[in-house]
C-alpha cells in the first residue's frame, strides 16, 4: 500500500474521514473532514483537491473553515455534476480517497483596510467566510451583501451575520431581504458616498464581474476568488490559466485570489464551460459555486 498521509503520524495507512455532513439547501452540503496536516497549515484563501474514489476526478474545493486543534476542514459542496454528487453521497464515517492541500496563495490581509464590503452569491459565501474571519480579527468593519436566487438557497447566513457589522440580504425573487441583485445595494452604497477600503466579491463568475464593474467606477480595490478548471492544483497542468491584465496566470498557484479589476471574466466563463457537454458523465470542477 502506498500510504495516504494526513490523519495520523507518518506510518499509518490513513484515509480522510467524513466526521459531519449537513444539508444546507437543496444540493448544497457542509462536510467536516479529518485532515490534520492540511488543517494545521490552512489559511484564508486556501483550497484543497479531493478525490472520492479510485476512478474519481480531482475536485478543487475552498476551505471554508479549519480547526487545527481538532484536525478538521469544513467544505461546502454544491452537487451539480457526477463528481460532486459522488462526494455528497458520502456519509459520516466514510472516507475520502484523497485530500491534498492547503493549495493556492493565501489571501494577504491588509492591516490598513478598516472597512470592507463583502459581496457573495450562491455558494461563494463558503470561501468568503475565512476572509471575513481574517478581516474581523484584523479589526475591520464589515458590510456583507449576501445573495441567492431565493430564500431556500441562502446558506451560512448565521455565520455571515456573526462576522459582519451589517448584512444586506438579496434574493432574485424577493422571498427574503430585498428583491434584486447583489450589485444593487453595492452601487447604492457607493453612490451615497459610503467609504470602503476594499471590496471582496466571491460567487459565480458573472456576479463577480458585475460587482467589479460597479467598484471600478468608484475606484474601489476589489478582490475576487476564481474557480477555474484544474487538475493537479500545483501549477503543473496549466489548465486553470486566467488572463490578469492581459497576462496569463495560473489560478491554482498564482491565485485563486486576484485583483478583480484585472480579470478577464469573459474568458473565465468560456473556459469554465469547456466540458459542460460532458457533465452528464462527470462534472469537472466547481470550486466555489456556479450559477
Amino acid at each position: 500500500m502506498v500510504l495516504a498521509m494526513g490523519a495520523a503520524e507518518v506510518g499509518g495507512d490513513v484515509m480522510f474521514k467524513v466526521l459531519e455532513k449537513d444539508l444546507l439547501a437543496e444540493n448544497i452540503y457542509r462536510m467536516v473532514i479529518e485532515a490534520p496536516l492540511v488543517a494545521a497549515k490552512a489559511r484564508a484563501g486556501n483550497f484543497v483537491i479531493v478525490r472520492v474514489s479510485e476512478v474519481g476526478e480531482r475536485i478543487p474545493l475552498t476551505i471554508s473553515n479549519s480547526d487545527a486543534e481538532r484536525g478538521t476542514l469544513t467544505l461546502i459542496i454544491q452537487a451539480v455534476g457526477k463528481s460532486t454528487r459522488d462526494l455528497v453521497q458520502l456519509e459520516s464515517g466514510d472516507n475520502l480517497r484523497d485530500v491534498l492541500g492547503p493549495l493556492g496563495t493565501a489571501t494577504e490581509i491588509n492591516p490598513d483596510v478598516k472597512r470592507v464590503v463583502a459581496v457573495m452569491g450562491g455558494i461563494g459565501v463558503a470561501p468568503m467566510l475565512p476572509l471575513l474571519r481574517a478581516y474581523r480579527k484584523a479589526g475591520a468593519e464589515i458590510v456583507s451583501i449576501l445573495g441567492a436566487r431565493s430564500k431556500e438557497l441562502l446558506i451560512l447566513r448565521d455565520e455571515v451575520e456573526d462576522l459582519s457589522d451589517e448584512v444586506i440580504i438579496m434574493t432574485d425573487d424577493g422571498s427574503d431581504g430585498e428583491k434584486g441583485l447583489v450589485t444593487d445595494p453595492l452601487r447604492r452604497m457607493l453612490e451615497q458616498g459610503e467609504k470602503f477600503d476594499l471590496a471582496i466579491a466571491i460567487g459565480p463568475a458573472r456576479m463577480m464581474q458585475a460587482s467589479c464593474q460597479v467598484t471600478k467606477e468608484f475606484d474601489l480595490p476589489t478582490l475576487v476568488s476564481l474557480n477555474s478548471i484544474m487538475i493537479d492544483g500545483t501549477g503543473m497542468c496549466g489548465g486553470c490559466r486566467v488572463s490578469i491584465n492581459g497576462e496569463t496566470k495560473f489560478a491554482c498557484v498564482d491565485g485563486p485570489d486576484f485583483d478583480g479589476h484585472a480579470v478577464d471574466f469573459n474568458e473565465l466563463v468560456l473556459r469554465q464551460g469547456y466540458y459542460r457537454d460532458q457533465e452528464e458523465h462527470a462534472e469537472t470542477c466547481q470550486t466555489f459555486g456556479r450559477e
Binding site: G56, I231, C237, R271, Y274, H281, T284
Partner: peptide, 27 residues
C-alpha cells in the same frame, strides 16, 4: 478552449485515465 499544455493533456490521459472516460470520471 481546445489548447492544452502537453502536461495537462497527458495528465488527464495517463494519471486520471481519461482515455477510459466515462468509466473514469475525468474527461
Amino acid at each position: 478552449n481546445g489548447v492544452y499544455s502537453a502536461n495537462e493533456f497527458l495528465t488527464r490521459a495517463n494519471l486520471m485515465k481519461a482515455y477510459l472516460f466515462p468509466e473514469y470520471d475525468t474527461p
